[in-house]
Write a protein that binds this DNA or RNA. Structure first.
Lengths: 144, 144
DNA sequence: TAATATTAATTGATATATCAACGATTGATG
DNA sequence: CATCAATCGTTGATATATCAATTAATATTA
């Protein structure tokens, strides 16, 4: 039982990611899930919850609860799709967009720190590697 | 407000990691935290909880609860350090080691899939990049 | 030695995530 | 048209994570 695969890439990734999330979360004061949710909303005009769920891989119950809370805080609005009342369409309010701009500034600072010493090519290479791995493990499933 | 940094490395990393954890978790049937905990225990003979907490960056309350449960399942044993009764020394049982061997086999399979098409050099490069990023964000803090 | 401070582990309160079950709406089929 | 199936969102039960407060043991210091 030799340690040929210990401190493997998965282990390193996990340790790294935990660190990253912990630091980044403290920067922005927002949990990773919520950050991803807001980030997604920032990039679409209006979107229904199931699409959010699928793209973010967050449980639909969690989606509902996040959005309820965000709606209460005035960050998003929700309305039914008039063409199909099953769908709930979500969009950021102006306030919501403003908040996110602040987060994004934090994020830029954080990324600058994270990527210190990385050339453009290295960054591209890294992104590409992540992409390849993601393809490897999502292979054989329907793409989003 | 241009999208110069959208779909940034952080976003990609998050999306990728969520995927990875989801798939990997389904493979082994163990949560990421618990997996990391067991993995650590596998590599040390005996360790106290605070050290675990610091190295894994898991809350000490979570450590306690995990270990209680694992103890109940016969995966670990706990005893007080005779030299200092504040410390609780944890170690895997034989059963625990056997279980982990099974997880490790799942992990090997999963990693093979994850790293399909990656040469040795690419894997090393990727690890190194992660390491560099980790250093970038842990800079100025006491190392573990 | 007695009083105080520090450290490890635990517990309680709370927040957030997941799974399963449910209700409401729409689509499909006889 | 009526029934059945499928889809979206919500809720409840439960598991797990975090923070703050607590307890027990040890170290420090007057």
């Amino acid at each position: 039982m030799k340690d040929s695969m210990d401190n493997s890439i998965i282990d390193k990734l996990q340790n790294f990611y935990i660190q990253l999330i912990s630091q980044f979360g403290h920067c922005t004061g927002v949990s990773p899930s919520r950050f991803r949710l807001l980030h997604k909303l920032y990039h679409v005009d209006e979107i229904n919850q199931t699409t959010l769920q699928k793209e973010l891989q967050i449980d639909s119950a969690a989606i509902t609860r996040h959005l309820k809370q965000l709606e209460g805080d005035g960050i998003v609005t929700r309305r039914n799709n008039p063409d199909d009342n099953r769908f709930t369409l979500v969009r950021l309010t102006e306030l919501g967009r403003q908040e996110i701009v602040a987060y994004r500034e934090e994020k830029i600072l954080f990324m600058a720190q994270l990527l210190q010493g990385f050339s453009e090519e290295e960054q591209k290479l890294f992104s590409h590697m992540i992409e390849r791995m993601r393809n490897n493990i999502t292979k054989g499933r329907n793409e989003e």
